[in-house]
Design a protein around this nucleic acid. Structure first.
Lengths: 376, 376
DNA sequence: TTGTAGGCGTTATCAG
DNA sequence: CTGATAACGCCTACAA
């Protein structure tokens, strides 16, 4: 542990001091007490660490040197230490993703898309679940100052002043997925869930539904507020008066969707239900079926996010796609670009929503040949 | 970029060389070109970096020194660099988890449990999705040599010789979740899915089912093989002859479960179906309902893993719990212990399966009051 | 091409 | 308690 660097000038094998200190020529070379380093390789090849490093990185080196170093590296099983490399390069090749709920399939889809882009660039993805708690998210943002990652993608469902300041003085690039103020000077990927809800309402109205209910998430979240506004605006546009009995709020989870729908059905009789996300929609479906409603015959159902879950249900759920994979991909690209060039101006990407119609709001066919289902 | 360390001996402020080099007294202190370091803080406080470091780490320092350093650190907004710290401490405070499919809720549950333990210890979790591909997994294992994480938890569904050797010469601790050879000298957390399948079969037999089908995952996977063996053994134990027409194989995904069930129903008429995991079970449920079978009246259904998904379905699915959260928690504990003490002998933890009976194999009540459902 | 000599930011050791 | 200094493992001017 105290490899005094005496004998660095020792004639003979000039670079052998490490080996000398270790006291054993061959054996210890494999495991001084840890793993072989550039020094180990250099000593073994009989060259300087500079030469060893160069060869290992594929820059320069005479054929002979290259041969010797490669051989030595192979013999001792040299693997570069990522930490040391990071200290030198000032980057960890790690990118973080912070989402509210890692169990929500919409984030799984987003994560997969991000992972693909990130891995493609040779980096790795670090995933954080924030539980949607502000303190958690800002703490995460602040931790970026430690520089343990090269950048972060965050998808907050609430955006506070704290977020903004933490975002502003982050030493590493951050891309936000979600609605941000128009003038926020940061990379941002967004969609328009307000429009998404409109798509759902339009479809239901077009297929003859009039008593359209809405099961939303918390109104004090960005998506919750947008979807509420979207729902009200869409009904108004169709000249359908809003019955507050047909609107319920919970959080963005399955259980909440189930319970909220239960409350709603206790006081009103909708002929259609729009849900603020698929988790809620699945909960709603459960309640509807449990209470003996036929879907879509009695009640048509439309979810949002178009997750795998929507296709797994019976009947399969119609759902508004907010392009989660696309948003993830785009966010990852923006982030990588900014990591490569921090001087870039703030950019903004927008992904348009689209409606995917499936059995839950389509032709009422309770039991049908599987082929129909598969291709639906 | 070439902060020649002249003036280190300059009289006056001895530790000011960095500041000197930066050329500006105050302004640049906040951002030499990156962030403030211990040097910045030390210079500003007028003490040595050693003292600064000590105070920053809460070890030693006279009240006066502590005050000055704290003040300086606060003024410049000092945050320790995680990478440099890692190089020194030889640990990253990062732990990796490698699972096949991050979209499978069973892994989400496992991940959450692991995350809780890992976060509790002040570390962070890095998640890898392997897609179950061997090359992918061994590459991951080999990458551990870079020491970018302090340890890894891996849950392979296939275990090859490559895995074993990669596992054996990993320089950092690895805990395997899954079945390993009895004598494999490594930390291992397992369950007994063979017994789990037996639980399911016993239950179905006890409730009067006789034509019990089985939809499994690939037989060349460890869990696939175990579950197949378990199914056959259980039937035999009950003296029920096995009808191969009642056995189907796909992979461990929803779509495969759906298709496999379709094939099975095309040639046989089971009165119960055991599925090798919940994803398959959900697919099976879809096919059953689509083909007009009533669940559980016509066909009882039992899944495995007891994921959130099972509770989301209508009817809710009975499922064999393999204690995924528990296994995750246990694995994380074993890993952290080993990181703290690499000399520990290999340990093995076992989590027992249990059956959770729900509507899909219970009393046939297609539509019932929601309350019943909620508490089921 | 090759080797010398830092330096990345921290912590730890060892004299004063 | 404090400061000088050596690591941690790697990369890279710069000089030879």
């Amino acid at each position: 542990m105290t490899p005094a660097l005496i004998s660095a000038q020792t004639p003979g094998n000039v670079y052998s001091y490490r080996v000398e200190v270790q006291g054993v020529g061959r054996k210890r070379l494999q495991e001084p007490d840890g793993r072989p380093t550039v020094h180990t390789v250099a000593a073994r090849a009989g060259v300087s660490i500079a030469s060893a490093s160069r060869v290992l990185n594929g820059v320069g080196g005479s054929p002979e040197t290259v041969r010797k170093v490669r051989a030595a590296a192979a013999e001792v099983g040299y693997v570069p230490n990522a930490i040391a490399r990071s200290l030198q390069s000032q980057r960890t090749e790690l990118v973080a993703l912070a989402v509210e709920d890692i169990g929500n399939p919409v984030y799984v889809a987003m994560m997969r898309a991000i992972e693909a882009v990130v891995a493609e660039s040779g980096r790795q993805l670090l995933v954080h679940a924030t539980g949607g708690r502000i303190d958690n998210e800002t703490a995460l943002l602040r931790r970026l100052a430690h520089r343990y990652v090269d950048g972060m993608i965050i998808s907050p469902i609430r955006v506070t002043a704290e977020h903004l300041t933490a975002l502003a003085d982050s030493p590493v690039p951050v891309v936000v997925i979600g609605q941000l103020a128009e003038d926020a000077p940061m990379d941002n990927v967004r969609t328009d869930s307000r429009l998404g809800i409109a798509l759902a309402v339009d479809h239901l109205v077009a297929t003859g539904r009039r008593r359209i209910g809405f099961v939303n998430g918390p109104l004090d979240t960005v998506p919750g507020a947008a979807r509420d506004a979207g729902f009200r605006a869409a009904l108004a546009r169709h000249g359908i008066p809003l019955d507050e009995n047909l609107v319920e709020v919970g959080d963005f989870q399955y259980a909440a969707g189930r319970e909220a729908t239960e409350r709603l059905l206790a006081r009103a009789e909708p002929d259609a239900l729009v849900c603020a996300n698929d988790l809620i929609a699945v909960g709603a479906l459960h309640t509807l079926l449990a209470l003996g409603r036929r879907v879509p015959t009695d009640v048509a159902l439309v979810g949002m996010d178009d997750t795998e879950l929507a296709r797994m249900m019976f009947p399969q759920l119609s759902s508004v796609s907010l392009g989660s994979a696309e948003r993830g991909r785009k966010a990852a690209e923006l982030l990588l670009q900014r990591i490569d060039d921090p001087a870039l101006p703030p950019r903004r990407a927008q992904v348009a929503p689209s409606l995917v119609v499936r059995a839950s709001s389509g032709t009422p066919v309770p039991a049908q040949p599987i082929r129909e289902e598969v291709t639906s």
